[in-house]
Design a protein around this nucleic acid. Structure first.
Lengths: 162, 162
DNA sequence: CCCCGGCTGGGCAATCTGTACAGCGACTCA
DNA sequence: TGAGTCGCTGTACAGATTGCCCAGCCGGGG
């Protein structure tokens, strides 16, 4: 899917985002056009989902992160989804296997505020039961580079440098 | 913490990351220096954690996302953390309240591969019990703009435009 | 009433971007 | 083996952008 050069490009832009295509090509010892083409391709294929800056909720004052598991009434998924998407503190929601039906990642300003957010959450009658886990600390910060590395073809084969 | 202009800058750069400072200043009808200063400040204060591109694991071939809850032996957190950080498919780990001790976000190429990843996970003797939830679909995709909006001072007060 | 921080509008040199083109080596298919 | 294709290189050029600086202006706080 991606080769060693792609991986190096991703790594470089992850570590030093403001670097620019030209400087990147110098660092990687390849032609500028190559970096540009690779970057375009990575974007086109969706590997790079977006170049948007990453915003830290904590720095916005939302210092508490929690995961809420919701049991919802049969067939009410659409409705609940709409409800959840109207709550700004809900950062992402997944349908999941297991006891709960939905898993939400939510944030709040503090523990009291979390209560408010949860009250908002369960404000929908289609939500039958909830269970909330508060994230106390981050053991492994969100990361992607190790995965990029392990997804690299050359890390498994591909002898030629290309 | 942040005002309306900050919020508009964040929104603009989130929607059209490649826009550049100059074009952004035109769109927002403010001086270029202002956008530049705001952007610098947002970065310095940590609101913008990074300008790194967002990589999509699915596009790398890791189409399965799961959340694993781990019960670990007392006092073995450090050791387990090190163990987890060595597994590329582990994208983030939080210490949490509740029954489990750690919550991991993991990805895998497919369901079979997920089994392999989980086997890797529980390869540490300090992990007592695990419970895995597979994400079947994304109900609300990771987002931050609604939160930015709700964190904006002007959305609550601050009458002057500044 | 003065000072200060923040925004404006302007300017300048240096750099980068977008784009194009020809050459070249490697690979694929006949 | 030969033709065609693909990706990378090196180069080129115009136009746009960046980083940085400055003077002026304005409103709020002391």
């Amino acid at each position: 899917m991606i080769d060693g050069l792609d991986a190096r490009i991703l790594e470089l832009f992850t570590r030093e985002p403001r670097i620019g295509v030209l400087e990147a090509s110098r660092r990687l010892q390849v032609a500028r056009g190559t970096v540009q083409a690779r970057l375009d391709r990575l974007r086109d294929t969706g590997v790079i989902a977006t170049f948007a800056p990453t915003v830290d909720p904590a720095a916005l004052g939302f210092r508490v992160t929690a995961f809420a598991s919701l049991d919802i009434r049969q067939g009410a998924r659409e409705s609940v989804a709409a409800h959840l998407s109207r709550i700004p503190e809900v950062l992402e929601v997944h349908t999941i296997t297991g006891q709960g039906d939905l898993l939400c990642r939510i944030v709040a300003r503090d523990n009291d505020d979390l209560q408010r957010v949860i009250d908002d959450l369960v404000g929908d009658d289609n939500i039958v039961r909830t269970s909330t886990l508060i994230a106390l600390s981050t053991v492994v910060a969100p990361r992607i580079l190790p995965l990029v590395e392990s997804a690299t073809a050359s890390s498994a084969s591909e002898p030629h440098t290309r």
